[in-house]
Amino acid sequence: MQKTILKQQYENFTASRSEELDKTYDRFQKLISQLEIHGEVISQEDANLKLLRSLPSAWNNIALIMRNKSDLDTLSMDDLYNNLKVYEAEIKGQSSSSSNS
């Protein structure tokens, strides 16, 4: 039963627009860990794609660039997170300027 709930949470996982990237990442990591504890295997590429698709719309351009990287299937979640972290200030700048206008 728990495994089914966790799989559902994984399928429906999304980040809210106000949520910091590290909070989203922590929640996602925890979910992946729980799934693994229950015997569910999620490939590196699936996890990376899921994380990219769960980001708010402000991240669309960067997520698209990341999804098209040839090493997405071997890139660790930490590396993907670190790559995204580089863009976080830029994304925050865009979203705050668009909400101000």
Rank of each mutant, 00 (worst) to 15 (best):
G39Y: 06
Q34D: 14
A63F: 05
Q34R: 10
E40W: 05
I65F: 15
I42G: 02
K23L: 10
G39N: 05
A58D: 15
R27Q: 11
L21A: 00
N61I: 10
T14R: 14
L35T: 01
H38A: 12
R17F: 12
Y25Q: 06
Q44W: 03
L64W: 14
F13S: 00
E11W: 11
E11P: 02
Y25F: 10
E36A: 09
Q9L: 08
I37K: 05
Q8W: 07
T14L: 07
L55T: 01
A58F: 15
N60L: 14
L49R: 10
H38G: 08
F13P: 00
T24W: 03
Q9P: 03
E36V: 04
E20M: 06
M66I: 01
K50Y: 04
A58P: 12
S16F: 03
S33A: 12
Y10Q: 04
T24N: 06
K69Y: 10
I42H: 02
Q8M: 09
N61R: 14
H38L: 13
E40P: 06
V41Q: 13
L49M: 10
S16P: 01
I62T: 09
Y25G: 04
S54K: 11
R67G: 15
G39S: 05
E20C: 03
H38F: 13
S16M: 03
I65Y: 15
Q34K: 10
G39P: 03
T24L: 04
D46A: 13
I32G: 05
M66D: 00
A15I: 08
I32L: 09
R17G: 08
F28V: 01
S70C: 11
A47M: 03
E36N: 09
Y25R: 05
E19L: 01
E36S: 11
P56A: 12
L31M: 00
L52Y: 07
I62N: 05
T14G: 07
I37N: 07
Q9C: 06
S33V: 08
Y10C: 02
I32A: 04
E20A: 07
N61F: 14
Y25W: 07
N12D: 13
S43H: 06
P56V: 10
N48R: 01
K69R: 15
D46F: 07
D46M: 08
W59A: 01
Q44P: 01
N61V: 12
Y25T: 05
N12C: 10
K50D: 03
E19Q: 07
L64P: 12
A63K: 00
S18G: 08
Q9Y: 08
Q9A: 08
N60D: 15
I65S: 15
I65M: 14
V41G: 08
T14H: 13
R67D: 15
I32D: 04
Q29D: 09
K30H: 12
Y25I: 04
L55W: 03
L55H: 01
T24A: 09
N48C: 02
M66P: 02
S18P: 03
R27Y: 08
L64V: 14
L49I: 11
D26R: 10
N68I: 11
L21P: 00
F28N: 00
N12W: 10
I32N: 06
I32H: 09
I62P: 03
Q9K: 12
S43M: 05
